[in-house]
Amino acid sequence: MFGDILVLMLSAVLIENFIFSRFLGCCPFLGVSEKPDTALGMGCAVIFVMTLASAACNLVYNFILVPFNLEYLYTIAFILVIAALVQFIEMFLRKAVPSLYNALGIYLPLITTNCAVLGAVILNMQKYSDMARGQSFIFSVLFGFFAAVGFTLAIVIFAGVRARVEYADPPKCFKGMPIALVTAGLIAMAFSGFSGATIG
């Protein structure tokens, strides 16, 4: 069990990094990565939401969709759960933990349309739905958490590099997004060094 969790952690964070090998969550990755601070804020918000969304969607799938034979409606069900969850977290944080709300608040609404969250939930469903309910719940939550950690790692590294690229002087048509994409490609190349690794 412990070994399984270690393997899951390494593969979710490094080997199958959400951004660099699965291309999930590229929009916020390119949109909110101009400064390392905001990138870290976005990363924390994603960790928070993705872990809770994995738990909630696993429960919805196993206890609502499967008993009623409605598995084919999973896309609608999951996106509604995520949207409601994000709204709920926002309201809860504003009342209960205002300091955290001030730090994460502006990123929360953006997360509803972050394909990393929906992607993680759907991958969880595909990978773990054959397991026993308790086990699939634990693995889904862990996968959600570690995948989000991988996302945060990627976005913070990228923001650090990008802050330096700002001062470089690329050809005019490369200014802004194109040079950022090329930079992302080079970082992805570094990450692909992990991709041959098999553990276990």
Binding site: S21, F23, P171, M177, P178, L181, A184, G185, M189, S192
Partner: peptide, 22 residues
């Protein structure tokens, strides 16, 4: 066809379109 190539090729194509529009 690996992920790094995807990012780099997209960057170059966007630069090309920018150039074209300019």
């Amino acid at each position: 066809i690996l992920p790094p190539g995807g990012f780099i090729i997209l960057g170059c194509l966007i630069a090309l379109v920018n150039k074209l529009i300019h």
